[in-house]
């Protein structure tokens, strides 16, 4: 009996690693090895053109007093604090709404929400630049119509970051909504029927059944969106290049500037290692926080 249990356990372990093997290999080769290499580079002075010079932890020391870097980290955090809750609440809200609406139309509605996701980030950035244009842009023309003052949007240090958040929210809302919706659809209908007998409908049913049962998906969306918000790059590069006056210079953009514009590859790698640690700690905290509740 015991031996059989052991055998089963061994079998389970072997199957598990068998299932994990392609990804373990692939991720090691194509992500982990490059990551380790980036750490190795961070201990050097390297401009990609001439040989690397080992300088120990000097890049990290330099970073401590790099005001522009810490400003970019701060800006990234602001971005995250606004964007992540906005996207999370928005996509959950619309998923629930789509789940309760007339189901005949749900396919059309979902497609409408999902369409922005189909368009390349560069092109959506271009479209929004037209909409945001301070002089002829659609939004300001609309503001004229309803008697609101015209805004500078991407041309203003106060509004640029928020304008970009709106674009990225617009792109990702439908996709995350779809993931939520897929999970909501997985909740057995009996649960709701049982709750109905207890008098829990609408908001109550959401709070006591839907939301708790969505926990695995919610954790996923939160962690992935947080990680993603630290890596937003394309849209900012196209729309503002970090400007005006650095108001949208987030960490990844600053790393790119150091690495590929200044060709300070060593320093850029050191910044990336630190950014990695920041994301790592944040994600770990999120995972811990949400899984502990169980």
């Amino acid at each position: 009996m015991k031996r059989k249990g052991m055998k089963r356990k061994l079998n389970e372990t072997l199957t598990a690693y068998g299932f994990l093997l392609p990804n373990l290999l692939g991720l090691t080769l194509f992500v982990f090895v490059p990551m380790v290499y980036a750490f190795y580079v961070s201990l050097h002075e390297w401009n990609a053109l001439s040989p690397k010079v080992f300088i120990g932890f000097d890049n990290y020391k330099e970073m401590a007093s790099d005001k522009e870097w810490w400003n970019s980290v701060y800006r990234t955090l602001i971005f995250t604090v606004i964007y992540v809750p906005l996207l999370f609440a928005g996509s959950l809200f619309f998923a629930v709404m789509l789940n309760t609406m007339r189901q005949r139309f749900v396919g059309v509605a979902r497609t409408m929400f999902l369409l922005p996701f189909a368009i390349t980030s560069v092109i959506s950035a271009v479209i929004w630049m037209f909409l945001y244009d301070p002089r002829n842009g659609f939004i300001n023309q609309f503001f004229d119509l309803v008697g609101l003052p015209n805004q500078q949007f991407l041309g203003s240090t106060d509004q640029a970051l928020l304008s970009i958040i709106i674009v990225i929210f617009w792109i990702n809302l439908g996709y995350n909504m779809m993931i939520f919706l897929a999970s909501i659809k997985e909740i057995p209908i009996d649960y709701y029927e049982a709750a109905k007998i207890d008098g829990a409908t609408g908001w109550k049913a959401f709070w006591h059944i839907t939301f708790p049962l969505l926990r695995p998906t919610s954790i996923f969306i939160l962690v992935v969106t947080t990680i993603g918000s630290f890596q937003v790059f394309d849209q900012i590069m196209v729309m503002t290049k970090g400007g005006p006056a650095n108001s949208t210079m987030v960490s990844v953009l600053y790393i790119y500037k150091q690495g590929f514009e200044f060709l300070n590859m060593g320093y850029a790698s050191a910044l990336a290692v630190v950014l990695f640690l920041i994301i790592f700690v944040l994600s770990l905290a999120q995972l811990r926080l949400y899984t502990k509740k169980d």
Binding site: G155, S156, P244, A245, F262, L263
Partner: peptide, 16 residues
């Protein structure tokens, strides 16, 4: 590029 960036940053400051 560092000098170009410093000059550009000064310009951005007076512009925006």
């Amino acid at each position: 590029p560092e000098i170009v960036d410093a000059v550009g940053e000064a310009m951005q400051q007076v512009m925006f």
